[in-house]
Amino acid sequence: MLDPILDIRGLTKTYPGGLTALGGVDLQIRKGEIFALLGPNGAGKTTLIGAVCGLVRPTGGTIHAFGEDMGKHWRTLRARIGLVPQELSTDMFEPVWRSVSHSRGLFGLPPDPARIEAILKSLSLWDKRNVQIRALSGGMKRRVLIAKAMSHDPELLFLDEPTAGVDVELRRDMWKQISEMRERGTTIILTTHYIEEAEEMADRVGIIRAGKILMVDEKDAMMKRLGRTEALISLAAPLAAVPEVLAAYPVALIEEGRKLCYRGGDGAGQGKTDVAEVTKALTRAGIDYTAIDIHESSLEDIFVDLVEGREALAGGAA
């Protein structure tokens, strides 16, 4: 990748208790993209973000941001990076305005009321500027944390589960705001449990599990490469073996031969064509069936497959 904005190589983190949260992570982030880091609880997402932002001291590996070594030039580099943490943790007794202004000062920038006003307005927090943070709803609190992270105009912004605990409407709202940030040139790395979130807004998706990056790809390419059509054909009578005529297709008998399961395709229509061919072949062979259930795997299915260790699916695609 040409001039990545963030270049992580061989990053490891073993916590004092002996738990290895990151087991050699390599990851390059492109300037201007939205990158979604997807992984189950305890995969190491927060640890990875923490290592870049200075919250966690890495055990090994290197991190370069904007082409410079984070370990050496942390002072200048951190000023260009923003972080919205997973937990709603900030001084809850502070009013919104002061809290956000404080963040700007902490990052070494002179006060700029106009900029703070613009940020608060863009996050619909302007009306609440004099309200203590503890008096806001959960979704509002999260937006305050986003405002704080934006207050020093970072070029690289980390959002650790930005929409956790946020209702659907607010979530769409937040997606919009994140897209707007990207349009203004901010590179965004977010973690999420919501597949639809990655699907909706990410340019690229990385899947992390047990401290290892399993795969990184363009969202569309990943869908295409892994996108699978799954069809369950209920047979009128159980079969003992997969019929000869279907030998060319990725099918298997399940539920004691009462159902024929097709898994295949390329996420771009091939699967549906295959299923049509399979049913025609069945008819020609005189095998009767009573129902067909067909669906496309979403990113979620891929994700679930991967994290449950059913990599057979991914392996088959290679």
Partner: peptide
């Protein structure tokens, strides 16, 4: 207090030594 509440994340991520 910030260590306890987690608010210290901001200090740790800031260009502050």
């Amino acid at each position: 207090m910030p260590r306890f509440t987690g608010a210290i994340y901001e200090l740790l991520s800031a260009p502050v030594g």
